[in-house]
């Protein structure tokens, strides 16, 4: 599947533009799942295509929002102790 995708990317990106394919790659790029070649093609496209560039920025900003603004809850103090004693009593 990966090689097919690449072939098809090479074709589409060597031509004019293909925003649809760019958008399909977007999440792979954002999630660090794209190959170096896919990344190169993707960035080449968004360098020249403002709508895709903006979509990418928006998606990335939402991901960043989740990572930076969501408060993490503190683990209750007694939880580890409880787990340990439960293990001891059942072992």
């Amino acid at each position: 599947m990966a090689t097919n995708l690449l072939d098809w990317l090479r074709q589409s990106f060597s031509g004019q533009n293909d925003c649809e394919k760019c958008l399909e790659l977007l999440e792979l790029i954002m999630d660090g799942e794209a190959s170096p070649e896919e990344e190169k093609l993707f960035h080449k496209h968004i360098d020249a295509c403002l709508p895709c560039y903006e979509t990418y920025n928006l998606e990335a900003s939402i991901k960043k929002l989740l990572q930076t603004k969501l408060k993490r809850k503190q683990v209750p103090d007694d939880l580890i102790q409880k787990i340990r004693s439960k293990i001891r009593s059942t072992a």
Binding site: E20, L26, L58, S61, L65, L66, L70
Partner: peptide, 20 residues
């Protein structure tokens, strides 16, 4: 692939934890 929205990056950046 449809990702159309009129949400803006600046709006997203101003959101706070509770909203997210």
């Amino acid at each position: 692939v449809s990702m159309t929205t009129d949400l803006r990056v600046e709006t997203v950046q101003h959101m706070i934890g509770d909203e997210v």
